[in-house]
Write a protein that binds this DNA or RNA. Structure first.
Lengths: 359, 359
DNA sequence: AGTGTTTACTTTATCGATTTCTGTAACCTA
DNA sequence: TAGGTTACAGAAATCGATAAAGTAAACACT
């Protein structure tokens, strides 16, 4: 017997210190009722006399009984667990999404299982496997995967899931995120409007966000008849894990290659911050010599050495919308068709890009 | 039958798409073995012939079988779940602790359940309750509670737990954090050494960290025979949730009251950042008019408008040490006596406090 | 009075695993 | 050859709950 416990009768209203958790069986034995009756009381089943209900609830309070949610889940098939897989919670964007998500689902009785993929597709696949084994009700994934294998397995398994931030090509799934092409376009056009001609882009990895912001960048250049130059685009690994350093190094690379730009659009704010450091360290001025735009609109952007112009991704809204979809997926009998919620990014202009006075 | 499933025989090596998860029972039926045998194979029980073992493993791979961890936990009494309760993951300190903790325990097969108390003791108590019902193997708590009720219940329940960052008076528990008195002392003495005389403190809430940093502040003043003035100490609510604004308002309050300091030690970095904004907005210079020291040493501290002197709390180390203690608590038969791991904070000097040139 | 309906519980089966105990050959040993 | 081991597999009980079906008593109606 792994969890043995003597089924002795607990004296009324005295003993309050327990070593093992109280079970329904204990309460039932105490009151001379069956386990099922206790269970029904706790789930507000109508089938119970008022007097009995109160007797049970009284004892439940006395013993401070907590139902074993695992046992319950095993039989109901509902775990009230939601998994969240992100590259890292160190990046404030994901932390904010996590908070917003958590605060909505917690109110409905769900708990959040957090896993981080550290931007490694294999690790992500393992984490998803591990979470699936825990019978989650649903999963939220900001995937760093490039193939659809892990997620197709999820779908086969019948586990509902929602992608956030990053879409995956060739996968019809629920998605919540911002319009990243638009984000890239707005940022770049803003720089163009400030009179910049040689606009560099510190691009993100080969994910939908990285690619689309880059696409938006090209689109804006093209629209304004500015030549796209490979030499002004820098790729870095780990942009989400270690963005600041990646940004610094990217700028050093540009400057060393004599490919000096007059503006930089960085994939995210940490990279922009790194870029800021490298630019200032090189003795250049922001925005006079190089104008700078980031993406993410972190809380402290306005308080940086040079307040940073950035694209707001509405992280809290992403978390909330995701939570809504999740609850729908879980609670409706006929799950809705895969749908995308694409939020419009907003440009927040600060000093790092402002060459012309506002009119 | 809530989770009914026909026990049909799956044709070999063809059907790969499933709607319901595969169970041991399916594999057993497939191979003409008993469930127990499958279970033994999967747990490397010696009691199995090599030929059988391979037949089972082959089928397990074919069907991509994943054991139902809930069912397993129910009988073993081990869930391989660890709960983490923090005031918020928006604060980078907690995000960093969470990441470090997660990365250690994940490698050992544990998953992390995340809950945030939003700095509200009642919410914290509810979250702890909810997590306990999930039969966690252990709990990590950065508590915002002032009384010991919720945690005593935990102890009664036999759930191992570790406090981090904030201690609770009158509770003998495992604890991992920095020496906050020392943190307050170092920060304040540094300001004194820079020649500051009227040092304000934006203090944290009535938690061990808030109180101890304040104690350290008083200690340093006393040591250097500087009078402690109530008027230079500002208390704010929600210092961890909404620190930037609290910092801004605190400074405005000081300036409005004509209690203009020549230095400010802020409870944490977000508050320091808010303070920075208010000071600069008021047309004062940092550090010439007011020197500023924060606490937390966030990644971007060096890139703020005025690079911020701060106290490093070794968040990653806290996460890792906590993980070690957790694993000990869970895996050893005779849990060790409650012990505290107190790390020494380090002062990171940057421009915001540097009035005298470094020698 | 006889039959149907409620009301309030209980009994039995089940969820998907693990643990402990049994059972059966085959193989040794004296 | 009898008695004892060893190797391998299965049966039954269990974990702590819920679901579905069953039952006994009280009440209702014609």
């Amino acid at each position: 017997m792994p969890n043995s416990k003597p089924d002795f009768k607990i004296p009324h209203a005295t003993c309050i210190v327990f070593l093992m958790a109280v079970r329904m069986k204990d309460i039932a034995k105490d009151l001379g009722l069956s386990v099922v009756t206790i269970s029904k009381v706790l789930r507000n089943h109508p089938d119970i006399a008022e007097a009995t209900r109160e007797r049970v609830l009284k004892r439940v309070r006395e013993l401070d009984y907590q139902p074993n949610l695992m046992a319950r889940s095993l039989v109901t098939g509902r775990s009230y667990l939601i998994g969240l897989v992100v590259p890292t919670v160190l990046h404030p964007f994901f932390a904010e999404v996590a908070m917003a998500l958590s605060s909505v689902v917690t109110k409905r009785g769900y708990s959040l299982l957090l896993a981080s993929s550290e931007e490694q597709p294999e690790l992500e696949a393992r984490e998803i496997q591990q979470l699936m084994a825990r019978q989650l009700d649903a999963l939220v994934i900001a995937s760093c995967a490039t193939d659809t294998a892990a997620l197709e397995k999820l779908a086969r398994n019948g586990s509902p899931y929602v992608l956030i931030d990053r879409e995956i090509a060739g996968l019809a799934a629920h998605f919540v995120g911002v319009d990243d092409i638009e984000a890239g376009r707005i940022a770049t056009e803003h720089l163009i409007e400030q009179g910049c001609k040689r606009i560099a882009h510190l691009r993100g990895r080969d994910t939908s966000t990285g690619n689309k912001r880059h696409d938006g960048y090209r689109l804006a250049l093209h629209k304004h008849a500015i030549e796209y130059r490979e030499s002004l685009v820098v790729s870095s690994p780990w942009v989400d894990i270690d963005g600041i350093r990646q940004g610094t190094e990217a700028i050093r690379k540009l400057l060393a290659a004599d490919a000096v730009p007059d503006a930089v659009f960085a994939y995210n704010d940490p990279m922009a911050i790194g870029a800021m450091r490298a630019i200032l360290d090189a003795g250049l001025r922001i925005p006079e010599d190089i104008a700078l735009v980031g993406c993410g609109n972190l809380h402290y952007d306005g308080l940086l050495r040079v307040p940073l112009t950035s694209i707001d991704q509405h992280s809290a809204a992403i978390g909330e919308r995701t939570a809504q979809i999740l609850l729908q997926l879980i609670e409706s009998k006929t799950p809705p068709q895969p749908a995308s919620v694409i939020l419009s990014p907003s440009l927040i202009v600060r000093a790092s890009s402002q060459r012309k006075p506002t009119l």
